[in-house]
Nucleic acid binder design. Structure first.
Lengths: 329, 329
DNA sequence: CACGGTCCCGTGAAGGTTCACGGAACGATC
DNA sequence: GATCGTTCCGTGAACCTTCACGGGACCGTG
């Protein structure tokens, strides 16, 4: 429980100076093989490990760290983005520190902001809190385009994707449109009521809208909401599910209820998860370019790094969607 | 592009000393309201942000950081563990930095080890590299029990779980056992050939073993391998799939091929993913206690922290499995 | 006037590492 | 024997923040 073993301890143990220890530890030149070995042994003996803080304090600007807030680890959409972010960051020499908002958003951001240079992710709260919780850090919002200064964003143009999907469904004969929305979005006040997806869908469906049912953002929640929607509006022949996870439950539930998909009702998800290939029929979905989100985010992060993370004019990038016609629609 | 803005810049901008800036930034006492406001404004104006390194250098011992190596973000088993680790760590005041081994394990561990106090995760390589790549950091291996000094482990007692599963399958009438193993494990030399799971299963099945087919560690890979297994050994009436992801493909493929599950063949997965509830019939699986893995890992991490991360005798914890009888077996 | 107390603020030091530079020892060269 | 170059190693400084302590200004009290 004694205090930490420092470079000086190793130096005196090996009978050399600090600098020589550094040379030995970092495989630098200007040191004899015998001395290097002696120092390394002393370090091993004492269990010496360089302080990452002191080290990074000296050569700052070297590596940058990005704090990623993952909305949920139970939805592959978010973990996919995290995966792309991670591999992309590694290629560009960035560190990624991940946090998941278990309780209060503030708690997560508080600890995270002390460790990183940029804050990135799906924060899922009123964005007024964002600037405050970030404590002066630049923020990249992956959820919606922000109007706050210092808050940048990468935005999925889902609206045109939904319009495209509804149009294509019409071409395939659909006339009565229903939707399952997420109950999750109701947790927040202004920013999310009603959900943008719902608004876009209702506008696209127009007079052909049958109804909207709200469900929990899980597989079973989607299945239940889907069944409820068909119970209330039996004439519905095309359903947009809030996301793929819920759509999986819909396909599954339709199968259990003996409802023909896409014969009687067409089902379309949102996200483009490869998981959609695991059900029968395979899930048709509006695919969101997760890799594009990640790379755009990292682009912004690098621009911010170039400006030494000083406040700059907000950057807003956008990625487009792509229809993935599989079996369910 | 100038150098970083430090506390001294803010101090001179506000016409005060360092310490007063600190007082203002950290909501400390002994400062007048007017001065605090003036300092905060100056900080805002300059975009000042305290260096996390310098700060943590001063009050060390405060927060500890854990480096988590996630084998794959495409398998919910690993992201589940990450989620549990993240929420558990937050509760205990730990930071988590996550990395995914995209290319070489060494690269990931190299950068990660500079940032954290403990290394944790599924490393999936020859463990000889582990001690080396950790660069003196304590390591907690989540994959197998290590014999190396300084490498601790949390181990899933899957062997008894497999024995239990095979026994229960026999009670249900199964007599011809087959398995789909992972091709992934063939990437590594000594430690993984053949995979422990396969050895345990072959021993448990004994003379009732029909055959083993190797497949890619994905949903479709599992489906293909499953079909191949049944083609080669049509009399197989019970199959252990390497993990749930592959088992999902098996159930799916059986459905497509018109094979009755569990009537003609029983399918058992490994992991206990909730995703298994999304297929029909729902997947029976040997559930691994992911939360237990996370909490045990954090326990070990805290013990290591108490010892200031100095080398101590390896700690090995173990968690048990639990059969989840759903529909497929 | 002397003294104590409060309020506000500043200076030295520490924390552990790396960079830049200087310097000693030694053999080689002219 | 003086000079030079090489090899190896050590000392001062810097990185940026916080902690511990001290000190001046001001007010009130005896």
């Amino acid at each position: 429980m004694g205090s930490r073993v420092t470079i000086l301890d190793v130096a005196s143990e090996a009978g050399v100076s600090r600098q020589t220890v550094t040379r030995a530890m970092n495989d630098m030149a200007d040191i004899s093989e015998a001395t290097r070995k002696r120092v390394l042994e002393a370090a091993e003996r004492l269990g010496y490990r360089p302080s990452r803080f002191a080290r990074n304090l000296v050569n700052r600007q070297k590596t940058h760290a990005l704090g990623l807030v993952v909305a949920s680890f139970r939805n592959p959409y978010y973990t996919d983005i995290a995966a792309d972010m991670l591999s992309g960051a590694a290629k560009r020499g960035w560190q990624v520190m991940i946090a998941a908002p278990d309780g209060e958003l503030e708690d997560v951001l508080g600890v995270l902001s002390a460790q990183v240079d940029v804050l990135v992710g799906h924060f899922g709260g009123p964005e007024a809190d964002l600037r405050e919780a970030g404590r002066g850090l630049p923020v990249v919002n992956l959820e919606l385009v922000s109007t706050l200064p210092g808050v940048h964003s990468v935005h999925v143009d889902l609206e045109s994707g939904i319009v495209e999907a509804v149009g294509a469904l019409r071409e395939r004969g659909a006339r009565r449109f229903g939707m399952v929305d997420s109950a999750y979005t109701q947790r927040f006040s202004r920013a999310y009521e009603p959900s943008p997806r719902r608004e876009w869908f209702e506008r696209a469906a127009g007079s052909q809208l049958t109804g909207v049912v709200v469900g929990e953002e899980t597989i079973s929640g989607g299945g239940q909401a889907f069944a409820e929607l068909l119970r209330r509006h039996p004439d519905t022949d095309a359903v947009l599910m809030f996301n793929d996870l819920m759509a999986l439950g819909a396909v599954q539930n339709a199968h259990a209820l003996g409802i023909d998909v896409p014969g009687r009702v067409r089902i379309v998800g949102v996200d483009g998860l490869s998981l959609g290939e695991a059900v029968d029929p395979q899930l048709t979905t509006i695919s969101l370019d997760r890799q594009g989100i990640a790379s755009n985010t990292l682009d912004i992060a690098e621009i911010l790094a170039k400006a030494d993370f000083a406040p700059i004019a907000p950057i807003h990038r956008s990625v487009r969607t792509q229809m993935l016609w599989r079996g369910s629609a």
